[in-house]
Amino acid sequence: MKKEQLKQYWFVIKELTGRELKRKYSRSYLGVLWSVLNPLLSMAVMSAIFSMMFQRSIENFPIYYLTGSIIWSLFTGATNAAMTSLVDNKQLLIKVKLPMQVFTLSRVYTSLANFGYSFVAYVVFLFIFKIPLNWTMLVLIPIVALTLLFATGLSLFLASAYVFFGDIKHLYGILLTLWMYISALFYPVTALSETMQAVVRENPMYCYIAAARECMMYGKLPDAGLWIRMIVWAVVIFTFGQLFFQSKKNNIMQKV
């Protein structure tokens, strides 16, 4: 029984994710091919810009940027889409036989699927910039998993809050801009003042991005402090999101 339920959960998530991906390119001629083409082209543009304009500051600057950027997009893609997951699926909410979270989770999973496509493009650029292959690259898997857990927690919170306050969407957009600038996406963290460095290092998204760079670019494992930060942020935010969602469940159902 338990196993069947899990299987059904997975089926629903796959169906919902398939729908999101099909929708996204449903009007375009090349269709799903855009899922890879889009990150490939935008990465090409960004690499060109970053290797021509800010060359001096960091070695392999395009890869430095792209590594951070795929983790950042995974996070923003998940939370932005998940925020409206309950409101968008109004009609289905009342019919669903599984916990309502399935709609939010499917949006997060959609972002992971998009991450997969971007990753294909990313690997192409790893070759172009001659980044040596290293076994530490495997550590990216747990890092992505922790990023997802963190994103899921925040998504559950945002999705339930959005049911009551539509303007969360705009506020979150502004917050993301600020958040991006303190995540050291396109500058070395050492370029900042001591105090700002301390702030940035406590930023969970910076932790995930920095860890990804360690294992992908420098062939190193993230140090213990980084691991602790990554795990604690992910677990705490996920638990908070889940509890918040549970406590608002009845109100959500009444409101939508």
Partner: peptide, 24 residues
């Protein structure tokens, strides 16, 4: 309100809706 997604085909909607209402 059927919860159909009008950008998808009818077949895709059968599977999506069926999954939601609990069919394997």
């Amino acid at each position: 309100g059927t919860g159909f997604d009008y950008e998808l085909t009818a077949k895709e909607n059968v599977y999506l809706n069926g999954a939601i209402i609990g069919f394997t």
